[in-house]
Design a binder for these strands. Structure first.
Length: 171
DNA sequence: CAATTGATTGTTCCC
DNA sequence: GGGAACAATCAATTG
């Protein structure tokens, strides 16, 4: 029944990636599944799920963010061989948005302020618009995926030295 | 002076 | 399955 698919809106890139296929090769990896999940999830949101409101909880506003990137030097032991994480769609959007934002708000500087604005706008953006950035990120992840294959392979190869070597032993 | 944090969301990894 | 951490960027801040 029915093709469901189609939303009458031919999206600018609705056919692009995200769901685009990556080949059906062996897809038994959980990774793939997870990856798709994300796509579906995002679709859901775009459809209209609205919301949830973002409560700005004055009380709990303080999120434990202490763990973000405190020290780049330490990195995590895992990344010793882990490929660097590519920027997410949001980041790409930031690059684009940042330029315009600065023009419209030359008074504002700092990604922090922009980030906040971006966050709000990001939520207002429609799936079609976002998909554009997602598409970019998706391609980037493709490269990342390759790098990870090697990383994974290396791991199987028998290397066990996860804990790297040098450096860091404090903590 | 230098290094760090801070802020945004998304994605990823490991167990 | 879930938690934790990190991805870029620039200004402001702190020691």
């Amino acid at each position: 029944m029915a093709k469901k698919a189609s939303k009458s809106k031919n999206g600018p890139s609705s056919s692009t990636s995200v769901a685009s296929a990556k080949n059906p090769s062996t897809a038994s990896n959980h990774q793939m599944v997870l990856r798709m999940k994300s796509s579906e999830k995002m679709k859901k949101i775009a459809q209209g799920s609205a919301v949830s409101e973002r409560e700005t909880r004055p009380k709990s506003k303080s999120r434990l963010k202490s763990k973000q990137k405190k020290k780049k030097k330490k990195k995590t032991k895992v990344d010793a061989k882990m490929p660097k994480k590519p920027p997410t769609a949001f980041f790409y959007f930031l690059e684009d948005f940042r330029k315009e934002f600065q023009e419209q708000n030359p008074d504002i500087k700092s990604m922090r302020d922009i980030g906040k604005a971006c966050g709000e706008k990001w939520k207002t953006m429609t799936y079609e618009e976002k998909v554009k950035y997602y598409d970019i990120a998706t391609e980037k992840r493709a490269e990342f995926d390759t790098a990870m294959a090697e990383y994974n392979k290396r791991k199987e190869s028998g290397e066990d030295e996860e804990t790297e070597d040098d450096s860091e032993y404090d903590e």
